[in-house]
Amino acid sequence: MVALCLDPLRQIFLSGVYGLLLVLLFVILQAPDVALSMLVVSTVAYPLIVLIAISRTRRERGKE
């Protein structure tokens, strides 16, 4: 589902949800370390860099 959504802005939201789903799966699979790292990464690190990348490409395209 995350891959099928073509608009990057909506995709980050979906990927955050997917990340949380994965965290749940990892906890069920008895892997707390992996769940912790996935949690931090998909809520803090990924949205930051992807949002900035999107806004940078958006703005320059709107400048023309």
Partner: peptide, 8 residues
């Protein structure tokens, strides 16, 4: 879109 590609 290249950003969409990275997320895939």
């Amino acid at each position: 879109n290249l950003i969409h590609l990275a997320l895939c």
